[in-house]
């Protein structure tokens, strides 16, 4: 039980990782990220309904996520960043609302099961019950995060990405377009969201309300770990997932959300830059 909770926590970590990607380049995050997860999951489900094979559905769903990420960047973030305002907070919330309402009307308000080709029988691994599905979650999360990290370290474009997050002006002086890099980060963040949706849907279900449940936990993970902490999110995600299963077991499922929220507020009170985050220096 704790282990499967921890594996769920990996999905929160994956979504939180998406926040880190955009925060690194633009100091902004998408408050409608949960809706991106949900919409991509629904879209992937529709792809299956239209008869697309399972292995083709995944890249299809991911592409959809990238597209949504780019739309968010263009419509909700870019103008606010140009004006150096924090308008993007409100704008991405608005985008989420629009996405939620559209999903409700296009795909219906009810939760729907997401088919999977993996067997559902639990396996015994070191005396712990794990389903193949849960293992697929872990593999999926680590693959995506690993590939993106590899991209950031091993390609010049990836290094440019890091340069923009280190010093935006200096990166521009090297010929790196900050605008494009921010677009890239939103695209990647959309991809990560879609992956999270595809991974988690077979375990939970797909429904419009999955967005708000996921996003709050992902926020908690991101803030507790620090928005610039890299792999800290994985650790925090696992801990939070495990804590959640414990709370819902001992206090009742209604309290499921509570540990994440309490953790978040505590983290903000004690270490506002996150457990793994760096302090910022004020400049005049």
């Amino acid at each position: 039980m704790v282990v499967s909770g921890a594996l769920m926590g990996l999905v929160y970590a994956l979504i939180a990782y998406g926040f880190q990607l955009t925060f690194a380049t633009s100091k902004s995050i998408n408050f409608g990220q949960g809706e991106l997860v949900m919409l991509s999951a629904f879209f992937s489900l529709s792809l299956l309904d239209w008869g697309m094979p399972y292995w083709l559905m995944i890249p299809g769903g991911l592409l959809f996520g990238v597209a949504l990420g780019l739309v968010v960047e263009r419509t909700c973030v870019r103008l606010a960043l140009e004006q150096k305002s924090e308008g993007w907070i409100l704008m991405t919330i608005i985008f989420g609302l629009l996405g939620f309402s559209s999903a409700e009307n296009i795909w219906g308000r009810d939760d729907r099961p997401f088919p999977t080709s993996l067997p559902t029988d639990a396996l015994q691994v070191f005396g712990v019950n794990i389903t193949p599905l849960e293992i697929s979650v872990a593999i999926g999360v680590f693959t995506v995060m690993g590939l993106i990290e590899l991209f950031k370290r091993k390609t010049l474009l990836g290094k440019a990405f890091e340069a923009v997050s280190a010093d935006r002006d200096a990166a521009e002086l090297m010929g790196v377009s900050a605008t494009r890099t921010i677009m890239l980060s939103y695209g990647l963040s959309g991809l990560v969201a879609a992956m999270a949706g595809i991974l988690i849907s077979p375990i939970t279900t797909v429904g419009p309300t999955m967005a708000s449940a996921l996003i709050l936990k992902a926020f908690s993970v991101a803030v507790v770990a620090g928005l610039d902490s890299g792999f800290g999110v994985v650790l925090v995600g696992i801990v939070l997932g495990a804590l959640e299963s414990l709370t819902s077991f001992y206090l009742g499922s209604g309290w499921r959300e509570a540990p994440g929220l309490v953790l978040l507020i505590l983290a903000l009170a004690i270490r506002p830059n996150g457990v793994f985050g760096k302090a910022t220096i004020r400049k005049v």
Partner: peptide, 26 residues
């Protein structure tokens, strides 16, 4: 709520208040 939350800027503040709302609904 303000004591910890208002040491934060922009997005972190929005997040803190958002989770406060969720927590109080719970």
């Amino acid at each position: 709520l303000a004591f910890p939350a208002l040491r934060l800027e922009g997005p972190q503040f929005a997040l803190a208040t958002l989770s406060f709302t969720a927590l109080s609904t719970t």
